[in-house]
Design a protein around this nucleic acid. Structure first.
Length: 112
DNA sequence: GAATTGACAACCA
DNA sequence: TTGGTTGCCAATT
């Protein structure tokens, strides 16, 4: 199974700096899994708490939260982001807050 | 193995 | 910009 990929996904998500956000598709690409944005969502759902994966820094490609507005999870995500200086307006984050990784940064963080 | 189900995304009207 | 459609692909049923 592609369970292996979960580790890579988690590791990639952990590279998102505080105060920045990335999309599911973006994470999938960086994790070497192009076209598997939905798998990223599942991986985050299975992510063990002890890994401290910043799942709340991952949103949809249109910069909206992946949870229904008002849901407990969406609320929690909004709080986390707000605490890092990322505010949500009309269920969207500002374009400026999207993570734009440098190639050098990615290479430096490769841990294999 | 077929059908269904997603924490999605690219397109198009 | 919003909403509907289609494509995706692994996990579940």
């Amino acid at each position: 199974m592609a369970k292996h990929h979960y580790q890579r996904i988690w590791q990639t998500v952990k590279q998102i700096p505080a105060g920045k956000v990335a999309s599911y598709g973006q994470i999938a690409d960086l994790a070497g899994l192009p076209g598997r944005a939905r798998l990223v969502g599942k991986a985050l759902g299975y992510a063990p708490a002890e890994l401290a994966v910043p799942w709340y820094r991952v949103l949809r490609s249109d910069r909206s939260l992946a949870f229904p507005q008002g849901s407990a999870t969406a609320e929690e995500q909004r709080q986390h982001l707000l605490a890092e200086g990322v505010l949500i307006k009309q269920n969207r984050v500002n374009k400026k807050d999207i993570w734009q990784p440098e190639l050098a940064e990615l290479l430096f963080n490769l841990q294999y």
